[in-house]
Simulated scan of single mutants.
Amino acid sequence: MKPFDAYLHTILTEGGMEAQRHGSSTVEAQHLLLAVAAQEGTAPQRILASFGLDYPAVRAALEAETQHSLSMVGVSPSSFGLPRPSTVTPSHQPRMGETGKLAIERGFASASRKRDLRPAHVLLGILRAEVGTVPRALALAGVDRAELLARVQSSITDDGIA
C-alpha cells in the first residue's frame, strides 16, 4: 500500500471511530478533522498544531460549536442533563456522511493526479468547506481559516506538488 493510501485508510478508519464515540451513524468532516489531528508526526497534524489545534483543542472547538449552535435555538445541554450519545455497535459501522464525502472529494480534486496526493490534501479538503460544523468551530476557536488554508496549500507546494 502506498503511503498516501495508508494515510487515507487510517483517517477514514479513525474518523469512523470518532463518529462512533460521538454516537453518529455517519462519518462527517468534523470526525475526519479529529482523525487528522490525532495522527502524531504527520504534516497535517503539525500544521494544525502550529495553529493551536492539537487533538484536544480541535475537540474543544467542536464541542464549543455544538454548544453555540444549540444556544442559537434556545437549548442549553447543561439545563437538560442530556444523556451521553449512544455508541454505534461494531456491526453497524458508521457510513460516510455527506460532509465527509465532500471533504474527501475536495481533497482529491485539489491534486492534478492521484499519484500527487499527499496527506495535506485530506486536510485541505476538510478546510475548504465554506459552511458547516468545521468552519463554525474554527471561527469560534479564533482560527484564521484563510491563513490555515494558505499554510496547508503552501505545504503541498513546498513538497514539490503544485
Rank of each mutant, 00 (worst) to 15 (best):
115 R>P: 03
123 L>M: 09
152 V>A: 02
13 T>M: 03
84 R>S: 13
83 P>G: 01
140 L>C: 07
136 R>C: 05
44 P>N: 04
34 L>W: 06
35 A>K: 02
85 P>Y: 00
56 P>W: 03
64 A>E: 09
135 P>S: 06
136 R>Q: 13
78 S>D: 11
87 T>N: 09
17 M>N: 13
46 R>C: 09
42 T>C: 06
153 Q>G: 10
134 V>I: 04
114 K>V: 12
44 P>V: 07
102 L>I: 10
108 F>Y: 05
68 H>Q: 08
115 R>S: 15
156 I>L: 07
70 L>K: 04
101 K>E: 11
152 V>Q: 00
160 G>N: 04
89 T>C: 06
19 A>K: 04
108 F>E: 07
37 A>I: 06
160 G>C: 04
35 A>V: 03
31 H>S: 00
56 P>D: 03
62 L>N: 03
88 V>E: 12
162 A>F: 11
15 G>K: 01
22 H>E: 14
8 L>E: 00
95 R>T: 12
16 G>W: 00
56 P>T: 00
24 S>F: 07
136 R>G: 01
77 P>C: 07
3 P>T: 14
150 A>M: 09
153 Q>N: 11
138 L>G: 08
156 I>Y: 07
31 H>Q: 05
1 M>N: 12
160 G>S: 07
5 D>G: 09
87 T>W: 00
131 V>I: 10
46 R>L: 14
97 G>N: 02
45 Q>C: 14
16 G>L: 02
12 L>Q: 08
38 A>K: 13
10 T>P: 02
83 P>M: 05
13 T>Y: 00
158 D>V: 08
10 T>V: 07
124 L>N: 08
76 S>G: 12
53 L>T: 07
54 D>T: 10
94 P>Q: 05
3 P>V: 11
80 F>I: 14
2 K>G: 13
84 R>E: 15
149 L>H: 07
4 F>Q: 01
132 G>D: 02
78 S>I: 09
114 K>R: 13
48 L>F: 02
121 H>Q: 05
73 V>H: 11
80 F>K: 10
92 H>R: 12
96 M>Y: 06
132 G>V: 03
84 R>C: 05
